[in-house]
Simulated scan of single mutants.
Amino acid sequence: MSNRNSQAAKSAARERIRAEREREKKRAKLRRQLVVAGGVLGVLVIAGGIGYGVMKANEPTGWEAAKEAKLVEPAHTQGKNGTEILIGDKKAKDTLEVFEDVRCPACAAFEQSTGKVLQKDIEDGRYKVRFTMYAFIDDMGGGEGSKNALSALGAALDKSPEAFLHYKEALYSLKNHPEESVDTYAKDSALLKVAEQVPELKGDKEFQQAVEKGTYDRWAMEMAGLFGRKGVKGTPTFMHGDKKLEMAQIPQQQMTQAQYNKLAQANFKKMIDGEFGPAKK
């Protein structure tokens, strides 16, 4: 081989080696880029997973979520978001406003002793009644019974005003009403058990489904949001227009249930007669 050919061969060999080294450098660089990209993607996936997890964890649940649920207004309601429950003869000149909380023991005492008198006045057309139902005991004492019972009352009201009144009466009854500190009505099963005692609701599958699905949960939250309306923050409270009606207190003394009921009814009738005039015979 000539010297010139030998030099050319060596030069070509060096060029192949250089080219191979360049290719290897490019492959190594590409591998590093892929590793980094994979790591970044992994971080993004993890970060995305964490972000999604945090987002899900921060999503409202239970009754907080009910505030954002679809609003279904029960039949026989009116006003903003269906929060005006007005029951009675539309021709009745006067409207008595009654403020209650289903878990309220004083409300239960009123309903057990005097609820029938109130219902008779409604039936007789003496006045209409606007019911404003609160759920402040849930907030004060913890629990969900007031809101859950209120949602069930919405399902009853959707059936008829009579179903609402009779179901409310059953929920407040001596037989069913729990101690204020016991959150019995937080359970749908307890509410449905009481409903079986109400002729208008007994065996009603639509009512049962509405209670179990929470159809009127959002409505119940809207109703509960009326807390403080007209300055009322305690229950039971009775108002005529902007006037708060005062009922005489029952003396703290030993008496039978019948004696208590008689006094309570007399005090209620006296308060109503004083505001609306004597009942027509």
Results as ranks from 00 to 15, higher is better:
E24I: 15
A190M: 10
T184G: 01
E196L: 02
V129W: 01
Q7V: 02
H240R: 04
P251T: 09
E97Y: 14
G49C: 11
L34E: 12
E15A: 15
I250A: 11
V182W: 05
K90W: 00
P60K: 11
V72F: 05
K29Y: 03
V129C: 00
M255F: 08
K147T: 13
S173I: 12
R16T: 13
K205A: 14
E111Q: 10
A106D: 09
R23E: 15
R126M: 02
H76I: 11
F164S: 07
A149L: 01
K67V: 04
A28Q: 08
K230Y: 01
E59C: 07
F110T: 08
D158R: 04
P178G: 07
V54N: 02
E222K: 09
E64T: 07
A92G: 14
G51S: 03
N148D: 03
V35E: 06
P60D: 11
V35C: 00
M133C: 00
R31G: 02
S113C: 07
K90M: 00
E275H: 04
V211C: 05
K193D: 08
G234P: 04
C104N: 10
N81F: 07
K230E: 07
H177E: 06
G53R: 06
E68V: 02
V36S: 08
R31W: 10
K187D: 11
E196Y: 02
L44H: 08
S146D: 04
D121S: 09
E196H: 04
L171G: 08
N3D: 11
Q119F: 07
K205D: 14
L153Q: 04
W219T: 12
P60I: 14
S146K: 05
T184Y: 00
V102S: 06
E73M: 11
N267S: 13
L118D: 05
L30S: 10
A109C: 01
S113D: 14
T95P: 09
G141H: 10
R4C: 03
Q33L: 09
R229G: 05
D183G: 11
L150M: 10
G38P: 14
L30W: 06
P199L: 03
A8E: 15
Y172N: 07
R18G: 00
K128I: 05
N261C: 05
K243G: 00
I137L: 14
E212T: 13
K128M: 12
K193Y: 01
T95R: 10
L174T: 15
F238G: 08
L245A: 06
A108C: 05
A210P: 02
Q197C: 00
L165G: 06
K26A: 14
L263T: 05
A248I: 11
Q254E: 12
D94C: 01
R31Y: 12
I85V: 13
G51A: 02
L263Q: 14
A163I: 13
Y127L: 01
V117T: 08
M55W: 15
L96E: 08
M239A: 10
K147H: 03
K25W: 03
G88R: 10
A186R: 09
S173Y: 06
H177L: 09
N3H: 09
V45A: 14
A155D: 04
I137W: 02
T132K: 04
A57S: 08
Y260T: 11
V45M: 12
L41D: 01
M255L: 05
K93C: 09
I250T: 15
Q253S: 11
S181I: 03
L86V: 15
H177G: 12
D158Y: 03
N5Y: 01
R4Y: 02
W219P: 13
F131Y: 14
A37R: 06
K262S: 14
A190V: 10
Q119G: 01
A109E: 06
